[in-house]
């Protein structure tokens, strides 16, 4: 992989030089949290921003969009007015989340809507320091080797810039004079030291060892009733999860016309109607069953299918769930520890 150096003070200049690659989006402070927003003033870009409220999936699968326009002749594909974008400030866990979405959306029966946006969205990753809710080390997603165009690693006064794609290479070439090809032994040592220090910053006490087996053994356990009783079935955990990809499809009719759109919007398996079929049979009428689905899908089933969990340890379920149901508390409960839910 091509690796270069960029002085931190040249970041703004560099972002300006690559403005032809698309609208710039980056995490911006929103209340006490961060959110990916369109950047009009480069001074708003903060490479040290914390986790964003919504993960990168909002760029690839918008919360709501039209798949087709229809009229009396049938359905007409609408890939949508997808704009070219450059998303700066993606953390390793979120890029790993995208790699999981790639598996779901871009392999067999690939989803043209996802692929169009994925192609048109350049991802610039940035290394981060874990806070008290991060557990990406436990899910092996604290680093990332692919899925991005550029990745900026901490290197004192510089960034170490990893070029991950052909588009990433073009971006570097558009600002060639700002990059330094010479990486010294000292730089490498500095990089290793920083990585070692970062390892020590993981504070969360979480153990996901043997999770698939534990799920198999606990699948009929009463703990699910307990978790189900607490769950508000609000769907927030699915909205903020980088790998939750479920969606609903509905037709919207234009008033007075035989015209309209077929729309796709985010759905959550924790919602009551999720498994309801015509005729009224609900395959998952109880919250306990739906909680079981959410967690078995992330921590057991996905491992069986793809060899790793579909949890990237971003901590969003922990910071979002109003009643403290999250990967940490569920894993603890399944291990037989007493857990207090709000």
């Amino acid at each position: 992989m091509r690796v270069l150096k960029l002085r931190k003070k040249d970041l703004k200049k560099m972002l300006e030089k690559i403005s032809s690659f698309g609208e710039l989006w980056a995490p911006v402070k929103k209340g006490d949290k961060f959110a990916f927003q369109k950047i009009d003033n480069l001074n708003d870009v903060d490479p040290n921003a914390g986790r964003t409220i919504l993960p990168l999936k909002k760029f690839m699968v918008p919360p709501r969009f039209s798949m087709f326009r229809y009229d009396k002749d049938g359905y007409h594909e609408q890939l949508g007015e997808v704009t070219d974008r450059v998303v700066f400030g993606a953390h390793a866990c979120d890029i790993n989340g995208l790699l999981i979405l790639d598996k779901v959306f871009a392999e067999e029966f690939s989803d043209p809507y996802y692929i169009e946006r994925r192609k048109r969205t350049a991802i610039i990753g940035v290394s981060c320091v874990p806070d008290e809710f991060c557990f990406c080390k436990e899910t092996n997603t604290d680093t990332v080797d692919e899925g991005y165009d550029l990745f900026f690693s901490e290197l004192g006064d510089d960034f170490l810039v990893w070029v991950g794609s052909s588009k990433g290479d073009d971006m570097v070439r558009a600002a060639e004079e700002l990059f330094d090809e010479n990486i010294s032994v000292k730089d490498i040592q500095k990089f290793i030291e920083w990585k070692k220090w970062r390892e020590t910053q993981f504070k969360m006490d979480i153990d996901l060892t043997a999770m698939p087996d534990i799920f198999e053994l606990k699948i009929d356990d009463k703990v699910w009733e307990k978790i189900g009783e607490k769950c508000l079935a609000c769907g927030s955990c699915s909205m903020v999860c980088p790998t939750c990809n479920c969606f609903n499809v509905t037709d919207t009719v234009a008033l007075g016309k035989m015209e309209g759109t077929r729309d796709r919007c985010w759905d959550a398996c924790t919602l009551h109607e999720y498994s309801l079929v015509a005729g009224g049979h609900n395959f998952r009428g109880s919250r306990a069953d739906r909680m079981k689905l959410w967690y078995t899908h992330k921590l057991q089933a996905f491992i069986g299918e793809f060899g790793k969990p579909s949890c990237v340890g971003c901590g969003r379920c922990i910071t979002t769930c109003p009643v403290d149901i999250n990967v940490k508390t569920v894993a603890k409960t399944l291990r037989g520890e007493e857990v207090y839910f709000k």
Binding site: F109, D111, N245, F247, N248, D267, C269, L293, G304
Partner: peptide, 10 residues
Amino acid sequence: GKCGHCVVKH
């Protein structure tokens, strides 16, 4: 295999 509704485990 995209929308998730019919999933049972994997």
